[in-house]
């Protein structure tokens, strides 16, 4: 599903990604761990198509399509979803309006019919109930005044509504309380299946006990320095990244 080869990228003239090779087959969940500043968010932004993240070499394909050639909205319509490490506040944009506009844009892209306000509300309420989110969050401005954990939950809600084929979760677990972590994980697990893949960026092994990964990769200094099975996360937790690189 996702194939990244020799990917290099720079931000403000500074090279951050120094040759990433990574393949996430359909149906698999891969975790990326790595120290602060190693390039994890940079990788996720490059995959989502953020301006200012300049690809200087390599390729990234999604279901065989050159992902890097697409506009961000086209990537989303193709089924790529990025849960932001730092969700953006949109004062003046109502959450319900935002979610419906996004959902309908993605549905248009998939050739599905758009949902009217009533159909959308029904769907959104059902998803929010599953995620244990209060309904008044629909009425508020997008992420405006949301607590850190509420913002992360709003990301998970968006993921649940947009039902992507590839979810990139950038530290979605950071800031979630114990119950919310469980609920968010359930949200990801509910999407798991033969047509869903995920790239889960996290600092904590704990998340990976809820979302059990097929593979774990260690990103350091802009490169994947080690890959392994789910037990690698436990090993990292025990001995740190210094040992990981040395190994």
């Amino acid at each position: 599903m996702l194939r990244i080869q020799g990917l290099t990228a720079e931000v403000d003239g500074k090279q951050i990604l120094k040759g990433i090779d990574l393949e996430v087959p359909t149906g698999e969940v891969h975790a990326i761990m790595g120290p602060n500043g190693s390039g994890k968010s940079t990788l996720s932004y490059v995959l989502a198509g953020r301006d200012g993240y300049v690809v200087t070499g390599g390729t990234a394909t999604f279901n065989g399509v050159d992902l890097l050639a697409l506009e961000p909205e086209a990537r989303a319509a193709a089924g790529v979803f990025l849960a932001f490490q730092y969700p953006v506040e949109l004062p003046g944009v109502g959450n319900a309006n935002f979610l419906r506009t996004a959902l309908n844009a993605v549905r248009r892209g998939r050739g599905e019919s758009e949902l009217d306000a009533m159909q959308f509300l029904k769907l959104a309420r059902a998803r929010m109930k599953e995620l244990n989110m209060p309904e008044d969050m629909l009425k508020r401005g997008v992420n405006v005044g949301f607590s850190g954990g509420e913002k992360k939950r709003n990301e998970v809600l968006q993921m649940a509504l947009l039902a992507p084929q590839l979810a990139i979760l950038d530290e979605t677990d950071s800031g979630l309380d114990i119950d919310a972590l469980k609920i968010a994980s359930d949200g990801v697990n509910a999407l798991r299946g033969p047509n869903f893949s995920a790239l889960v960026i996290t600092h904590y092994q704990r998340l990976l006990t809820y979302i059990v990964p097929d593979r774990v990769h260690v990103l350091m200094g802009g490169r994947i320095v080690r890959s392994g099975g789910k037990e690698l996360a436990l090993e990292l937790e025990a001995s740190g990244y210094g040992a990981a690189q040395a190994a």
């Binding site: 990537r75 932001f84 844009a105």
Partner: peptide, 13 residues
């Protein structure tokens, strides 16, 4: 730019 990207990353043209 961050707000614009956030919306576009959600599929909004």
């Amino acid at each position: 730019a961050d707000q614009l990207f956030y919306l576009r990353a959600r599929g909004i043209p």
